[in-house]
Amino acid sequence: MAEFIHENIEPYFNYWVYVIIMMIGLWALIAKNNLIKKLIGLSIFQTAIILFYVSMGVKEEATIPILDHHGHEVAASEHRLFVEEDGQKPAEGDHAQAEHHQAEDHDDHATNPDLIANPLPHVLMLTAIVVGVATLGVALSISQMIFKEFGSLEENEILEEIKASASDG
């Protein structure tokens, strides 16, 4: 068992976690009776996908995909500009130092790509987050209409109501 965990789960820990979270969401989506709980399940489901994508972009010991300006050969005027702006956010200084050394070795490729996380999944997930918010907003507004018309958000009660109105005319 321990061996199995060591070989199959440890290197893929995030991927296991994302599947588990996603399945929690899917279960809630199908099994829950309350429409709002279904929506919560839907949100969990979508969030798990975000975790999956972001996990893909992770590199061991890499930092966020924001470059350090000093590492580059920039024109003097631009350099001043960056120095000014760097002054406003000293928090990034730590990893900037590390990259600085990397960068000096080869000016053309100013950064060691192994030390910078993959930016693409972040970009994609920014889109997916926005889509998730938009879907949730529309779904909530529809559920509000449902409550207005059926007086309930419980699925079985709504279905009974539909059946009743269809049979007695």
Partner: peptide, 8 residues
């Protein structure tokens, strides 16, 4: 109202 539920 059935349409609203179908939309959901």
């Amino acid at each position: 109202r059935r349409g609203t539920y179908a939309a959901f």
